[in-house]
Design a protein around this nucleic acid. Structure first.
Lengths: 193, 193
DNA sequence: GGCAGTCATTGACATTTGTTAAGAAGTGGT
DNA sequence: ACCACTTCTTAACAAATGTCAATGACTGCC
């Protein structure tokens, strides 16, 4: 039985959800311990489960043809992990998901997910809302990424996710910002003065 | 009564949808003619309706504090328009939506939308799927935008949306690519050789 | 037809960022 | 404690992009 307060809070945030339904939802999930640097999804594989980050943090990225890593985003506590396209459509994944620290995921597999969506209005609601919110967020981010300089992006990141620079290797932060690690160093140096 | 083949095709793409339900869905929509350069949404306003682009094309963008325009994307035939966050949450919009050509929208207002989602499983399904697909698309795009040069982004845009460069002012294309109009000119000049 | 305004292009120059290489600092394993 | 390895930083130079200014093409209006 899942007891994570973080996850419980998330489930109970659905409108008018009864404890009976909460319990039923929880029953569909499993705890998964992930070691630092392990991948939970790799390109080409079918993503078998999505997971709620109860502890730790993940990066998700793509590799270009030339082998260049491009970090799309990080997932900290309270976020979901997994290649959505691969999970939902049972297609090969196009992204990698890697734990940057020892982590704990609260996971659900594809068939349990489908079943749960059918029997729980609350869970379906939460999932669709999460997708909607994430979509709106990345649209806004996309606009800012186009108009800001690297330094402005870095400062905005510090405001929005001050934990990133502490918990994530700087070369991954640089990739997330779309710049070279050396450029990030320069920017940090300039700011510290 | 809406007769647009494009819109009908979209509605009928829902699984197991009967003609009765299709008719009911259509009844919730209204045709809106939009003149070139008119805005359907402005920052600060509540977005009253979302619209299916039956004809024409739109740009949607944000204005930074310094007044700088930043094009998030374009919407051609078969896309939806409207500030989703504003529409769904009844909050002031953060984006502008502008017709770049004379256009025709098939629109629905907020309360009809809510009603329709409740009475039509098919419509709710189509809307959530559209959001999901758009989300996945922009995630993939976000990754590429970070790792590609401006020239690569321009070439990719030409492959994915060859119509853009014909139908949209180049300074808007440049903004969409996140570069200065002069840089776009240079890239086009270089490629044409 | 002429005029004003907008848009795309070009060139010169400044600024930013990438690349390459080197070294310093930190980390983990034995 | 030592070594190997990774990460971060710095410097010098190259490449890409932004900025500013000027020009020509085009459009719509009177």
């Amino acid at each position: 039985m899942i007891t994570s307060p973080l996850f419980l809070k998330f489930i109970r945030s659905a409108p008018d959800v009864k404890e009976e339904e909460v319990t039923m939802i929880l029953d569909h999930f499993t705890i998964l311990q992930v070691k630092a640097k392990d991948h939970t999804v790799r390109e080409g594989e079918i993503c078998k489960h999505i997971g709620f980050v109860n502890k730790g943090c993940f990066s998700y990225y793509t590799l270009s043809e030339s082998g260049r890593k491009s970090i799309i985003h990080f997932a900290f506590e309270d976020w979901w992990t997994g290649d959505l396209q691969s999970f939902l459509k049972r297609q090969p994944a196009t992204t990698y998901w890697q734990a940057l620290e020892e982590a704990e995921l609260i996971t659900i597999n594809r068939s349990d997910f489908e079943h749960l969506c059918k029997i729980s209005q609350a869970f379906k609601y939460l999932f669709d809302l999460k997708t909607q919110t994430a979509y709106i967020k990345i649209l806004n981010k996309s606009a800012k990424d186009k108009s800001e300089t690297a330094e402005e992006k870095y400062l905005r990141m510090l405001e929005e996710y001050p934990q990133i620079i502490q918990r994530v290797p700087h070369y991954d932060v640089a990739s997330y910002l779309g710049i070279a690690p050396e450029s990030l160093s320069r920017i940090r140096n300039k700011i510290s003065k």
